[in-house]
């Protein structure tokens, strides 16, 4: 008996539609995030993540509606991120049915927003998403605006700061690796995992099932997040979990 490593498919959503393709059999509308969420629920995903990649004020209502409809049908944990700026944004998403809400650039601009949200809703539902890029060997910097804008902030120091402010989990994306299919940035993952006492989700760069294994065995991550290897039907959630279990990682198998 022990806590299991989580496999988390992430859906990029814009204007209420899935941006990267979801290619499963039996999906009537592959662009509908709720249908995709149901398919991942049935497939045994350990959590789901919705990322609102435009997150303008105008399309907020669409995201709330999606979260509401997903929570009505999928009785599994759901994390929502993208455009979250204030404790009021957190509250609105929690009320819609999210279990955890993720801050990104708002936490970079003002780490105290993490403390305000954690004090009000509890650390257990506050995630901070960190997008980091290698600037020199063993040195990583926070980037915002989808990896375009450098901040000069050291990623490891920032992780420590937000954990101390009450973040209950860190979603760590390597901007060097995101979309490359070359695997997680393992030294970065290990550095953040060793720096904080809260769980770390590794993200960015998964191309093979062995990459998922490495994120845990070498990176030390508590959970692995991936998008395209699942969305394009390359691997199922079940295959990923069985592969990780075969490598000796404790997994929740169907």
């Amino acid at each position: 008996t022990m806590l299991k490593t989580r496999v988390i498919p992430c859906l990029d959503v814009a204007d209420g539609r899935v941006v990267k393709g979801v290619n499963f059999v039996d999906l009537r509308d592959a662009g509908d995030p709720v249908e995709a969420a149901r398919a991942y629920d049935a497939a045994g995903a350990d959590e789901l993540c919705f990322l609102d990649i435009h997150a303008t004020h105008e399309n907020r209502g669409t995201m709330f509606d999606l979260v509401t409809r997903t929570a009505e049908q999928c009785f599994m944990p759901l994390t929502v991120g993208g455009g979250v700026r204030t404790p009021e944004d957190v509250r609105a998403l929690l009320l819609a049915g999210a279990d955890k809400v993720s801050f990104n650039s708002a936490a970079v601009a003002d780490p105290d927003v993490v403390a305000r949200a954690a004090d009000r809703f509890g650390s257990q539902c506050i995630v901070v998403a960190i997008d980091a890029k290698t600037v020199s060997p063993g040195k990583w910097e926070i980037f915002t605006h989808g990896g375009r804008k450098p901040t000069g902030i050291d990623a490891v120091a920032f992780a420590r700061t937000v954990a101390a402010k009450g973040a209950g989990e860190i979603l760590l994306t390597s901007m060097d690796r995101d979309g490359t299919r070359a695997g997680f940035n393992l030294p970065l993952t290990r550095a953040i995992v060793d720096a904080v006492g809260v769980p770390v989700i590794a993200s960015g760069g998964v191309g093979t099932l062995d990459h998922l294994v490495e994120g845990v065995t070498e990176g030390g991550a508590s959970a692995v997040l991936a998008a395209s290897i699942f969305h394009f039907g390359e691997f199922t959630i079940g295959q990923a979990k069985e592969h990780m279990a075969a490598a000796g990682i404790p997994m929740r198998l169907a």
Binding site: T1, M2, L3, K4, T5, R6, D46, S123, Q124, G168, E169, G197, V198, P199, V200, S222, A223, R252
Partner: peptide, 13 residues
Amino acid sequence: SLKVPHMGWNDLV
């Protein structure tokens, strides 16, 4: 090495 919060799926005894 065990993180807090205890977050995720654990099996019941």
